[in-house]
Design a binder for these strands. Structure first.
Lengths: 153, 153
DNA sequence: TTTCTATACAGGAATCATTCCATATTAGGC
DNA sequence: GCCTAATATGGAATGATTCCTGTATAGAAA
């Protein structure tokens, strides 16, 4: 099944309505699935497909999708959130209830069960980021922007 | 060497000045090293130690410390940033230059060299979060807040 | 100890992603 | 086609963080 159909089916299952705005957002998410688009990009692109679309709705839609596990939200410092459709397995133990954060030193290979046994923490969701430089940026001379590295906003 | 001394020494090495405000922030960071304090908490606690201290300075100081690798900034959705002093090893490949993000499917155990070989991405920094519930929150009845789970701000 | 100046600070305004709210619209079951 | 709960709009509000301008000061040098 096409990813789009799959999403639409999920929405139906959950009793969510299929609106032109949501279809536009879905299209954009699929077309940009590798770009990890932010809300603004989604808004800009989706607006082309659905003239009557507000930024608020894009946020609401993205949040709704995230809530239903259709996409995943990635948050960053100083830059807008990004959204991804790749939900594959891809460590701070953050309690979503009380906000407490428990460090867990990771052995090379690690599974939820170990964490649960050793700390009693129940893992619901994961996020792993490695920060650095992609091959393009390593090759294409560093030129001037060297000191702009962290100037994001 | 005490952690505080170690930090002060690092600041001296980098030519950064040792001010009462910074000392207060350092104390708070050390005292709360396991709490992953946010800027507001740091401000509140540090203010007790150094009457003449502004929130702006706390932010500036935390950013400065992070820039020099003394602490690490953790960013979250909807809640303020948290800061940690635990810099131990603890995966999205995010290019800090062009902002591109490359997915890298992780085998159980994975090292930077593999990433570099397979993708050409040079890893500078890492972040791994597992989200879920801590043992306390699992035990202490879920009561009413069940639907507040994601109501963070 | 005093001087000097680059660095740091205070305090308040500004920014900007995101959310909220009140109202208007509409998807989709009947 | 009707009805209504779910959505969308758009503008205001929020809130963490940054920016800005004038002031203060750490610490090197005299």
């Amino acid at each position: 099944m096409l990813p789009k159909e799959s999403i639409i089916q999920k929405l139906r299952q959950k009793g969510l309505k299929i609106t032109p705005q949501r279809l536009a957002v879905i299209d954009v998410l699929i077309e940009n699935r590798n770009a990890h688009p932010g809300a603004y990009l989604v808004y800009g692109e989706a607006k082309k497909k659905c003239r009557r679309l507000s930024l608020s709705s894009v946020y609401a839609t993205l949040n709704e999708f995230a809530r239903h596990g259709i996409i995943k939200t990635l948050e960053f410092d100083r830059i807008e959130n990004r959204y991804e459709m790749n939900l594959e397995e891809h460590i701070n133990l953050v309690c979503e209830k009380c906000g407490r954060i428990i460090d867990y030193k990771i052995p090379p290979s690690l599974i939820q069960r170990e964490i649960a046994q050793e700390t009693g923490f129940m893992v619901i969701d994961k996020r792993m980021d490695y920060y650095g430089y992609c091959s393009d940026c390593i090759n294409h001379t560093q030129e001037s922007e060297d000191d702009e590295k962290r100037t994001k906003r």
